[in-house]
Each structure stands twice: as C-alpha cells, then as structure tokens.
Design a protein around this nucleic acid. Structure first.
Lengths: 249, 249
DNA sequence: CGGCTTTCTGCGCTTTTATGCCGGAATTTA
DNA sequence: TAAATTCCGGCATAAAAGCGCAGAAAGCCG
C-alpha cells in the first residue's frame, strides 16, 4: 500500500468516524504505529485533521473553524452566495450539497423567494427552515457525523428519483484536469447522484480551492454548467474553465 | 475514549445543563474522578467553564438565570429521561418521535452507549449527532416547519420498513379512555407508523399531560407497553394505567 | 548498468503523557 | 463542631510519543 493511499484511507476514516486511534489503524493497515503516527503528523501539518495523544480527531470535532479561515473566507463566500442567488427563480426545485459556502447561500436567500430546497445536509436544512416561504425536503439516511450530511444508498436512491431544476455543489477541490474531487467516498457518491438528477449543475468554490485536487473524483468538468467563485469572470485563473466550456460567473 | 473527546463531551454537558458534577461525569464516562477533575481544571484554564467545588458551571450560568416557563417542567423531564435511559441496551434500534421530552432523553444518553437512533425530528437529530457512539438514521421527507419534523408518505413508508426494538414517544396527551391523542394530523400518522414498527412502545409524558386528550387519536392504551412519568409508580394518578396492563415506571 | 542519494519504514531506546490511587489538607454540610 | 466530601500533591504504571539509526526500496545520474 502506497503512502498516499494510506493517508487517504486514514483521512477517510477520520472524516467518517470523527476519530481514529493509532493502534487500530496500525492493525487495519498492517504497518507499525510509528508509520501511522508519522502519517497523522503530516496530515495534521496540512491541516487535514487534529493530532491528539493516541490518535487523531476530525476538524469538525473541535467545533469552530480556525480563525484564519474566518473573516476573509466568509466575505468571499458571501460574494459567491450573492452571485448564486441570481440563478434561482420562483418555483424551482433545487438540490444542494452541504458545506459552508452552501450555508452562506442559504442565509442569503431573499425572503420573498418561493422554491423547494432538497438537501441531506443538516446545517443547510436548519437554515432553510428559517426561511418563511421555501419548502424543505430532507433526504433521509444514515448521518455522517463529520460532514453532518446523510449518506448511504437510500439517500442516493431518493436523489435519483428527483428531477431538480438546478443543483448547487459546495466544492472541496476543482481542477481543470481532474474535474471536481473530494476525499470522502460517501459524499462523492451523493454528489454524483445530485449531478445526474439535475438539469443544471452549479459549482460554488472559493478561489483558494481552485486548481487543487483530492483522492476521489466526483466528475469531469464537462458535467458542470456553471462555476461561481468570488473572482471576476475575467480573472486569468478562470480562463481554463471558460475554455472548457463552463459558464463562469 | 480520547482525552479531547472526553473534554468535548464534558463541555457539551456543561453547555447543556449549565452544571456538571464530577461524580456523575466520572460515572458516565467511566474514568476516575481525578481525571474528571483534571479535565475540568484544564477547561477552566482555557476559560471554557467555571470550576467549582464538586463540579463545574457554564459561563452563561453567571448571567441571568432565566426562569422561563420551563424550569419546573424541565426538571420533571430530566427525571423522565433518566428513567427512560434504563430501558436502552447496547445495540438496540430505537425509534423516537420529537418533542422536548425526547430532547431531554437525547441529552441524557450515557456517552458509552452504542445504539442506533432513528428519527425525523430535527432537534432530536441534532442532539443525537453530538453523541460519540450512536448511529443516527434520519427519516427524510418534507419538513413541517412548526413541528420541525419530517412528515409525509415517504417518511411513513420508511418507518414501515423498519423493525425497531423500542420506540419512545413524546406524548402530548394521554388518557385511559381515549388512549394517546394529538392535534397534528401528520404527526399522528407518523407516530402510528412508529408504533406498528416497534417491538415495544414507550410513552414519555409529564404528569400534567395525563388524563387530557386532543382531537385525533393515535392509538388505544393497549398498544402501549410502558409509560414513564416523573411520578413514582405508586402514585394514585397512575393506577388506571397499571390496571390497563401498562408497565408504569 | 552500477553507484549514489533520497524516501520510507521498522526497531529499540528514552522521555513524555495520561491516568489511577493514596493520604493529608481544605471545604462543605448536617 | 463533627462528619462527609472534595481537593491537592505525590507517586506508580502503562501507553504513546520522540529520537536516532539501519535496512529496504525507489529514484537519479553519469
């Protein structure tokens, strides 16, 4: 097993269970605890998890996101959300994933908007519920505590039955070569189903996450119709995506 | 259980109940009181709670201790929750409705409990998600904004597919003549399905709601196996229910 | 191809951390 | 004031971390 593979596995486990123990990982992958420890240390350095005595925890565990991400990113996400809102019309059926960018979108929805939002993301649902005029459909299944989203075959089957007008995806990593990618297997399955069930696919991402990729591919760029970032569409960073035929806002 | 996990749990408990006792925490998490004390000390150092003799208090405790409608009822619900917890065993599949009593039950679950909780109630789900060891299955469907619970045919169909070991119903009205009753059509449908899908049906209710009834019947008393109130089982108020063959705790 | 460097991994050692337990001091409660 | 509880410091122990090293594997280069 390759080092990257191992680390991807560890990351997946952390995202899934919120915690991992060095000892049990060492058993599962058949490497020494030293190796695991070194992996955890590296992943912690990259900010992908929190190393603690005896194992590691997922970031979401430590509640509030680290302040560096805070204000600046928050502002960018507001910009993205505002751009995204313009794509929504009354009466639409809208699928959304989870993630902080989607959350910002939920908060930005104008109160007079009448539409139906469908999601399995608990934080997003909570926001939608506060809105006076939108209908909320919750996708049920097992809850992944880390991502606070329902995952599983049942959720996927439900989404497959839908025919949404538009789908907003909070994106972890996008790259003109690898398409959109993620590090959680279950979430990837879900997003794939969402893409297939929607007339139009819109990716929301802060520029920071552009041109990066993660272990598991969700889809190629050609499945995506629209890309929204906080940048101006003229920004050279966005050129490759425009060339790929994506509508960049 | 990792140290951080434990501390996160303690913090959660403190924020929830505004106070914790070293002794009870030590029981719940199965570590020595010394360890708890050291944890409290650390958390106090980080300013996350206030350490006092015998336990700790939340910061908000310092502020206005708002004695809203709840306090008295709240206390009763805690008693009910504690009784209910004793019916839960590791590995069980548990269906729960919504309501504040169920919420209190969710908050009372001992951290080492491993079980699967199934519910369509958003507030309940949020509590379950905070628990370190339980699996959470969310029943999806359209969200009823005022009851904060998923309702509809799909939710009912999903529940029908389940075979739960036990079902906890927060009860709005119970009466030995009218059985359990409610005033929301959708919720009634849902609760009926829950009752049918469970081996054992447990009603949780504060004494105040006993011997009252509402427009729509959920079921007769004979469908109920156990009734939990804050009263002692010897209380004469409970006599009719015992006579009806219900196990009153 | 052969020798060199770099990376990755495991091993044995020491150091640090986490936790429980004990006895006496301090504090609360009856 | 006496009894019970809780706190605190010290100590013991087991687990985990850190460290240096060595061997294997992979990559590099002339």
């Amino acid at each position: 097993m390759l080092k990257k593979e191992r680390q991807a596995y560890i990351l997946h486990q952390v995202n899934l269970h919120n915690k991992v123990l060095s000892a049990s990982l060492s058993n599962e992958i058949n490497v020494s605890e030293d190796t695991i420890r070194r992996d955890l240390y590296e992943l912690a350095d990259e900010g992908k998890l929190i190393k603690v005595h005896g194992g590691a925890l997922s970031h979401s565990f430590n509640e509030v996101h680290f302040p560096t991400d805070g204000v600046y990113s928050q502002h960018n996400k507001k910009i993205i959300a505002q751009k995204a809102v313009h794509l929504i019309r009354n009466g639409m059926f809208i699928l959304t994933s989870g993630g902080t960018t989607i959350l910002e979108l939920a908060r930005t929805l104008p109160p007079q908007l009448r539409a139906t939002f469908i999601s399995g993301s608990i934080p997003a649902i909570l926001e939608y519920m506060n809105h006076p005029n939108i209908e909320v459909i919750l996708i049920g299944d097992k809850i992944s505590k880390n991502s606070k989203i329902t995952v599983g075959l049942d959720a996927i089957a439900r989404i497959r039955q839908m025919r949404a007008d538009i789908c907003f995806l909070g994106t972890n990593a996008i790259d003109y070569k690898h398409g959109i990618t993620d590090n959680d297997w279950d979430v990837v399955q879900l997003k794939r189903a969402m893409i297939e069930s929607s007339q139009k696919v819109v990716c929301l991402t802060i520029a920071e996450k552009m041109n990066s990729f993660q272990p598991i591919q969700i889809c190629e760029l050609n499945k995506i119709h629209t890309l929204i970032t906080e940048l101006s569409p003229e920004d050279p960073l966005l050129k490759p995506y425009i060339d790929a035929g994506i509508d960049v806002i």
